[in-house]
């Protein structure tokens, strides 16, 4: 089939770097990462349903170096996707659309997502005593 001569989006190479673009791209990338993260949720539920042996194996994998790297990545992906998703929901409701606010909120999302990820993992590491 002949490709229809419709206008193409400008390619990334000719865009000047801006934070709104970064949050937009990261939203999709973290979304794709979280699709694979959902398989980890499924694996955990299945391990729990199958019994103690499989659940212990699941916990062992989660605590392995590979498991920890994946979980840290998925934690940040989830927190970022949630914060940025909230920003998108607010914008869909018409809040925060002015360019200045848009830029400020994009930086805020990046900052808050990093802080929350650190807090969550601080709890994972030090929370055992609580």
């Amino acid at each position: 089939m002949e490709p229809t001569p419709r206008p193409l989006s400008p390619h990334l190479g000719i865009y000047r770097w801006q934070v709104q673009m970064v949050t937009s791209i990261l939203h999709r990338l973290t979304g794709i990462a979280l699709v694979f993260g959902s398989l980890m949720v499924l694996a955990g539920l299945f391990a729990l349903a199958m019994g103690e042996t499989s659940y212990t194996a699941f916990q062992h994998f989660s605590a392995s170096p590979l498991g920890l790297i994946l979980l840290v990545g998925w934690t940040w992906s989830l927190v970022f996707h949630a914060c940025n998703g909230l920003r998108h929901l607010l914008q869909a409701a018409g809040v925060g659309f002015a360019t200045v606010v848009f830029i400020r909120n994009s930086w805020l999302v990046i900052f808050v997502s990093l802080v929350l990820t650190i807090l969550i993992w601080a709890w994972v590491i030090f929370g055992g005593a609580l």
Binding site: G51, Y55, T56, I120, W123, V124, G127
Partner: peptide, 9 residues
């Protein structure tokens, strides 16, 4: 986060 330290049961 609340289940991290505990096991299967």
């Amino acid at each position: 986060l609340l289940l991290l330290r505990s096991g299967y049961v």
